[in-house]
Design a protein around this nucleic acid. Structure first.
Lengths: 241, 241
DNA sequence: TGACATATATCCGATTAAGATATTAGTTAG
DNA sequence: CTAACTAATATCTTAATCGGATATATGTCA
């Protein structure tokens, strides 16, 4: 049998197939706390609960393409740091039918986060409360601006928890933190982001040394404005060698 | 509309759905080198090339269940350390039809690896050659026992490469290495596993100290036998406290 | 112009990690 | 039975790193 004959004889409808979806964990650091964007479910199932923005993967688009498409459709965002997180495949995770969901997490600077909130009116800002410490992992809770706990739909508390765990793990040895900051930022702002994600205070001189020794930072020669005290130097993320 | 009415009205056949598969990266350390188990493809597409054992996910089983089922069916293995790796979703990764594949990696001690090779005669041992260093990542090459390069099917070189990258990353801060060793082992054997996976030599006293300080090891009081020199103490992985 | 707040630089002690070397304990050959 | 050999285990020294504290510099604002 030749390859062409084989492909013609292949019957893809022989198996009953699950639906495949992509869910987005859109994260930022707002007011010194980790935050995510949620949508209130207006349909069954889990009506009234809060869910991650997501959607089904089309038959003619890759998983990464689906994630980027949803980033534009749901959050009105063109570009963002985005990375595949984990694939959730429990049988009963959705009561409608078998849906396997590939979770992605995206990191946005505070300004783009605010823009997305305005441009996409169904999105709601939620502060993330991490009930575990260090690298233990587990689900996280979402809180609205007025401190109320937002009940989460499906297994989305696990997705948020895994995103926080991944973020904490990558913070120290990778450059993900820069995706949460504007193009130019102070060392203080960088430390605030680290502290918000880790949930701990850090030693200032030690943090400065570590970051500068990494070689990731490039001083711009400019200084922050609008402060009523000595303005700090603005750095940018060095992308070239 | 009540939830029950909604569920009855929901039509899951409205979307054209991709097939979902699970592929297994079955890894071990054989003769001081990382190794994996491959199957020769006897059908189109990629006839004659070498692939990871895998299969489709049934509609009534979770992803994890599918991975464990395949571990039993394909490798005749009951238990092994197993962990989800990444989900590959490019449109053209399989020429037959749209197949999204969730890759899992499993770690087996050398003895179980040999047992699987005997019990499942279609499996072939392949040594993995890592053409990159450190944490850079990328595809990996597979070599047969007589040194010939085995051409890999689909995107399976990427799956093998990602498995190696994950393994290297987890080696130092987690207990995955113990999944590659028998229940009782010497510190020398543990160091050999580390060196094979990292592809570098390690300092012996420093390695001993690090491992013993971690608190993961429990001395058994017994010693290895069959050596023509001073036998080393046998340790086991401490699972409690 | 001086008080103030914070950025930035320097310093020192403590903890940690690595590499080298010395010692111990089995095995085996003579 | 004993000495030589090999590799495991213990000890030691040195280098590097890290954290905390303090001191200084440099802006704003009253």
């Amino acid at each position: 049998m030749s390859e062409i004959e084989f492909l013609q004889a292949y019957d893809p409808s022989a198996y009953e197939r699950p639906s495949v979806a992509v869910d987005l964990v859109l994260m930022s650091v707002i007011d010194a706390a980790p935050a995510a964007l949620l949508v209130r479910r207006e349909d069954h199932p889990h009506l009234g609960r809060w869910a991650l923005p997501g959607g089904f993967v089309a038959i003619d688009e890759s998983l990464d393409d689906a994630a980027h498409r949803l980033l534009g459709d749901k959050a009105r965002m063109g570009h963002a740091y985005i990375e595949q997180l984990y694939t959730f495949g429990a049988i009963d995770r959705d009561p409608r039918t078998r849906i396997i969901s590939v979770a992605y997490f995206a990191l946005l600077p505070q300004a783009e986060f605010a823009t997305a909130l305005k441009a996409a009116p169904d999105l709601t800002l939620a502060e993330l409360v991490v009930p575990w410490s260090g690298e233990r992992g587990g689900p996280v809770e979402a809180c609205s601006a007025d401190g109320e706990t937002l009940p989460l739909a499906f297994d989305h508390a696990d997705m948020l928890g895994l995103a926080m765990l991944r973020l904490r793990g990558k913070l120290d040895y990778s450059t993900v933190a820069f995706a949460l900051l504007p193009e130019r930022f102070t060392l203080r702002a960088l430390q605030d982001v680290h502290e918000a994600i880790l949930g701990t205070k850090l030693n200032k001189p030690a943090f400065r040394r570590r970051m500068l020794d990494r070689g990731w930072l490039e001083p711009t020669g400019e200084r922050e404005s609008g402060a009523s005290f000595r303005p700090a130097e603005l750095y940018r993320h060095r992308t070239r060698g």
